[in-house]
Design a protein around this nucleic acid. Structure first.
Lengths: 340, 340
DNA sequence: CTGAAAGCGCTTACAG
DNA sequence: CTGAAAGCGCTTACAG
């Protein structure tokens, strides 16, 4: 009677014991047919499977977690101080991560962190709620990396980390930026202005190196006068853009679409026409500028794949492989109106 | 010896037993000082708390979950087939949900679902990994709602549901749209064209009602010829926009910024100037059009708050309160260039 | 105020 | 191939 009441309370959720009792076998046997560990006679296997199907048994993952000392959860950390234009990037990362995790029977916690406040991450780690973590952005001197390293929590980063021991998955930004820059040089442009993002982001350095590489390869030297870094907000970006115009560059390359958006805005305000008055290109397509006029020459990466690969690497790491970092070579240079 | 090895494997994670043994008290006592349930003498309380602090004990939430039959997790469902312009909406929802959940010691699974594929949601529910779910969009005839209702999983929706028994939190779209429309009428506009989104979304109907209400209040009748619904993709939207231009309306109201973006695009292509040639307004600000020229008259809601309130309602529901739906009355009509 | 014991729903040596 | 038993790390009546 008591037991019945209980079952009603719990929405009649069956446990492995219920199944075992009903069928006159042991819990072990049920557990083993479910997990596939250990030999079970075909006959009892079928009986159990059928009973489970008919009665709609579904395992309690929390109990499984406790028994196996695994949580079957990971956390994906995304920044709170995102730039609107960068949002699709994090979203696509999440989708890739989420899809791969699902395929491994894992679920993904969303963990939103400020640059200087990682309390959500800490809570999730201290409470032992995850088997691993994915960081979707890498900084020089990143507190989250440091923290996870200390706590010995397996993690992977999307983006390059300066710590060699960190599992990291990244696009080949350097190579891609080099190729796009080379293309611009080959089109005959010599004064290629550059507006770069925060130098606390490692990707900023990689992109700059690609820019440099291209110049070297063509026997040109980089003119530091037309390279502006740490373009953090719209005011700075607009200022830099106009200074490049004054310096009479052939083309402005923006390190990402977020910067590019601001350049387009000030150009519109000032009546500067792309590509007639000046050319424009972006090192990173956020899909936000996609159907824009003029259409923008840009680099295209597969972000969802980045998420998938990062998640795959994390699982390798969780399973003991310490050597699963990866550079994804694929990218496309998309030539559009803005550099015509 | 064996035990020692084990501890090393586990990164020396202390358990409640370790603490109890070290201090010569029982596990119950430790558990109770941690949870605050039951009276503990100040003296032992302090000893335990101090030991825990010094030795860095953190509880295993999985074990706690199993013991208490709670997961301390919820899932937030966001659509996979999102429109780029709608992304900030879901993001802000997530932030609100996540913040409130954290305050209750809960974590949030990200659950990405296609309109017709909710396998991620099913997995999370079948595996008993959550105590509740938040849906961030409501449809007429929504399979996810149906599913959660059947499974008796507590859930709340962001947006109005047609099922009265569903816990729902929404902005007062109807009232807000009425007010914006009234404003347009009072400015002297009589032919107010409307381009609406999918009629499978409940919010579409609510917005239309607000549009209608305003007309009624001013003794005007709605001219169905200048109301276009189900504007799903850019081609349709552009077509509708140009038809409204041909019909010589005073102003076009778009149900959201996603539609508005497309209208602006076709206007640019066709050389139609806002507000000189035609006025334009949007019933929903996605923040995507914010710094745009011309700036767009729009309705502003607090989305993060929506997420917080939905989460709060969900927790009330989990704790047995069946009557915690809520309409958030706050909104702002933001008047900008586009209707000048 | 404190402890011994049973229980949450699984898994997995160990023994047969 | 199958089962009894111990264990994962907590909580919570029950008894004192």
């Amino acid at each position: 009677m008591d037991q019945n009441n209980k079952k009603v309370d719990n929405q009649k959720r069956l446990t492995i014991s219920d199944v075992a009792n009903a069928l006159g076998v042991s819990k072990s046997t049920v557990s083993r047919t479910l997990s596939g560990n250990g030999r079970i006679s075909e006959a009892t296997r079928k009986r159990i499977l059928q009973y489970i199907k008919e009665h709609n048994y579904t395992p309690n993952f929390i109990a499984k977690s406790l028994a196996e000392s695994k949580t079957f959860n990971i956390a994906a950390v995304i920044p709170r101080d995102y730039n609107l234009v960068d949002l699709p990037f994090f979203q696509e990362c999440m989708i890739g991560i989420s899809e791969y995790a699902s395929s491994q029977n894992y679920d993904v916690f969303m963990c939103i962190c400020y640059e200087d406040d990682m309390s959500q991450l800490e809570r999730i780690v201290e409470n032992h709620k995850v088997d691993g973590v994915i960081l979707t952005r890498t900084l020089f001197d990143d507190k989250k990396e440091q923290y996870l390293l200390e706590k010995k929590v397996p993690f992977a980063t999307i983006g390059t980390s300066i710590n060699k021991e960190v599992i990291q998955v990244d696009n080949d930004h350097r190579e891609a930026c080099k190729e796009m820059t080379s293309y611009l040089i080959m089109k005959g442009f010599r004064r290629i202005g550059l507006i770069g993002g925060s130098e606390t982001h490692i990707v900023t350095l990689n992109r700059y190196r690609g820019y440099e590489d291209a110049h070297k390869e063509h026997g040109l030297s980089v003119d530091k006068q037309i390279v502006y870094m740490n373009a953090q907000n719209s005011i700075t970006i607009e200022k830099y853009a106009m200074e490049l115009v004054k310096q009479d560059v052939d083309v402005i390359v923006c390190m990402d679409d977020s910067i590019c958006t601001n350049v387009l805005k000030v150009f519109k305000k000032e009546g500067i026409k792309v590509p007639q008055d000046i050319k424009l290109a972006s090192y990173f397509n956020s899909t936000m500028l996609e159907n824009r006029t003029p259409s923008i020459t840009t680099l295209q990466f597969n972000i969802k794949e980045l998420g998938i690969e990062a998640c795959r690497a994390l699982f390798s790491r969780i399973n003991g492989d310490m050597n699963c970092s990866k550079i994804i070579k694929k990218y496309e240079v998309i030539l559009k109106e803005s550099t015509k």
